[in-house]
């Protein structure tokens, strides 16, 4: 009896370690393109062309990174991307905080209908709005400025929805007490509700940052000079600007790409737990 239980335990453990090994192999496989990106960014042009590819660079050529800075105005693109992403985060968060406050705690005529209009925005794809918005930006002379990159993304239906959920779950007593103390609405929102809903706000900010950092379609349309290009568009241009055999320059494209994903990998690693919980909480609307 005891022997058989021990044998069962052993079998169970064996199966678990097999499962873990399979897991490790699959994780490595999915990770591989990122690994390949990283090591390719350190190879020389000659090493990139070897008949039997090397899985570890023969020597680390940091000069590829310097080259990326030389071929395209990399620092400018990086700054543009950062300014655009931070700008969108600040604008979107503030607009969403205010709207979420109104829809969660306020009372006014037509609230339900208006909230439905906010939610309905979720199903309108970017392609539906880009031509009229492009024309609008062009008439305002905003094309190729940060205005065109940031302002049209000001309201996020997803953000309003997420924050409204968070605010609704908070108790009204604290707000009532603040009101008795003579607190205005901005004080209630920014001094009381915001700290209480901090995890949601931070997660929303991070998700907005990542998606703005990665955006391509919108910045591609809204900008037309090197001065205003963002990284995603700049890296695509880097490839197009190389005449002839693009295979000659992949090591440099890879170096430029590595630098562009570093902020995302850092942010993701730090915030992963929050991202996962926010994501799974918002699936069923």
């Amino acid at each position: 009896m005891r022997d058989s239980r021990m044998a069962g335990e052993k079998q169970h453990r064996l199966r678990f370690s097999l499962r873990t090994s399979l897991g490790v192999v699959i994780t490595a496989l999915i990770c591989f393109p990122i690994y390949w990106l990283l090591i390719s960014s350190f190879k020389t042009q000659a090493e990139m062309r070897l008949a039997v590819p090397t899985l570890w660079p023969q020597s680390f050529h940091w000069s590829n990174y310097a080259e990326a800075f030389r071929i395209i105005p990399y620092a400018r693109f990086f700054t543009n991307t950062l300014v655009m992403s931070v700008g969108i985060v600040i604008l979107q968060l503030n607009i969403a905080l205010m709207a979420a406050f109104a829809f969660a705690k306020g009372r006014f005529w037509g609230k339900e209908v208006l909230f439905f209009l906010v939610l309905a925005a979720l199903i309108v794809p970017d392609q539906v709005t880009f031509v009229p918005v492009y024309v609008m930006m062009s008439k305002l002379h905003w094309l190729d400025t940060f205005w065109a990159l940031i302002v049209p993304s000001g309201a996020s239906a997803y953000g309003i929805f997420l924050l409204r959920q968070a605010f609704k779950s908070l108790n009204n007593d604290v707000l009532e007490a603040a009101r008795v103390d003579g607190a205005g609405r901005f004080t209630m929102l920014y001094r009381i509700l915001l700290p209480m809903a901090k995890p949601t706000v931070v997660t929303l900010g991070v998700l907005t940052f990542i998606s703005s950092w990665n955006s391509y379609f919108w910045p591609l349309i809204m900008t037309n000079t090197n001065n205003m290009r963002v990284l995603s568009v700049g890296i695509a241009m880097l490839r197009d600007s190389i005449a002839g055999d693009e295979a000659m320059y992949f090591h440099i494209i890879m170096a430029a790409s590595v630098m562009a994903i570093i902020p995302i990998v850092l942010v993701f690693t730090v915030m992963q737990k929050h991202i996962v919980s926010a994501m799974t909480n918002s699936t069923f609307k």
Binding site: N94, I95, A96, M98, A99, F101, A102, F103, K105, G106, R107, F108, W109, L114, L117, V118, A121, V124, V128, T129, F130, V131, P132, V133, M136, V151, P152, S153, G154, A155, A157, I160, R185, L189
Partner: peptide, 19 residues
């Protein structure tokens, strides 16, 4: 209360519903 929803509504009207 309504004023707090206004910025979002304006942005949605200008950059989503009008387009």
């Amino acid at each position: 209360d309504f004023m707090f929803a206004v910025p979002a509504l304006i942005f949605l009207a200008v950059f989503l519903y009008y387009p």
